[in-house]
Simulated assay, not measured.
Amino acid sequence: MFDLDGTLYDSSHIGARLIFSRPLEAGLLFAERKTRKSLVGADYGQAEAYYREYFSRLSHTAHKPEDLLRAWYFDSFMPGMCQVLKKYYCPRPGLSELFEKLTRKSRKFAVYSDYPLVAERLRALGLNTEDCGLLYGPENFGAQKPAARPFLSIAEAMGISPGEILVVGDREDTDGAGAAAAGMGFIRIKTDKDWELFQSPSQG
């Protein structure tokens, strides 16, 4: 089971590039990141319940109406992320060949991300989604890593015992903790990331 951002590609400087691509939305980007951090490990059981809570918290942080923020998130922020990926990033060396080999050999695998538009982001990286296994995002579970249920649900969908699954990710606190909670193995991919840029100036 593969994480996406920071794992399938080196996400160095992505925070800065997202900000520079939409400087007028910097305040919303900071608020989005703060909101996401506040929901680490949350599990609301289904997508709409998760998004209701997400946009409620984002509205409180950004001081803007929820419906406006929902439109911004799905119509601007996420498509903007795809554009940044397409312009600046590519899969890690050998990843396409690995996925093609796994597909040819009928090996079951999945990509699980905390952000939506998983297929669109994979295509933005230049990957063929038909060779990327099963694809999952928050819209599938209404949860955020490291909640265990999505990991266990993916194992069930693949028909594989959790103990036989290896999670590949770049973060111990989300990918690794989720794998541990689900009884799965974990291997960490090291990458230089600057998501820490997504904190408000008052936070230092």
Rank of each mutant, 00 (worst) to 15 (best):
H60Q: 10
L8T: 07
W72C: 01
F55Y: 15
R92L: 00
G94R: 13
E25H: 15
D5F: 14
Y9W: 08
S96V: 06
G137K: 12
L127V: 05
R171H: 06
S161K: 14
Q144K: 05
L58G: 11
V40G: 01
F151K: 01
I14A: 00
D192V: 06
E25R: 14
M81Y: 09
C90S: 14
L4E: 00
P150M: 07
R149N: 05
S96N: 09
Q46L: 09
D192P: 09
G142I: 02
R107H: 04
D75P: 02
C90T: 13
K64N: 05
T174H: 11
M78Y: 07
H13L: 04
N140S: 10
G176M: 01
K145H: 04
R17P: 12
S76G: 04
A31F: 06
W195T: 03
L166S: 00
Y88S: 00
L122V: 02
A143E: 05
A155C: 03
F99C: 09
R52K: 10
R149A: 01
H13Y: 08
C132K: 13
Y112I: 04
A155H: 02
S12F: 07
G133E: 08
F151L: 04
T61Y: 15
L69Q: 09
M184T: 03
Y136Q: 12
L166H: 01
S202C: 06
V118R: 07
L4F: 04
P146A: 00
K86D: 08
G204E: 09
R17M: 11
V118N: 08
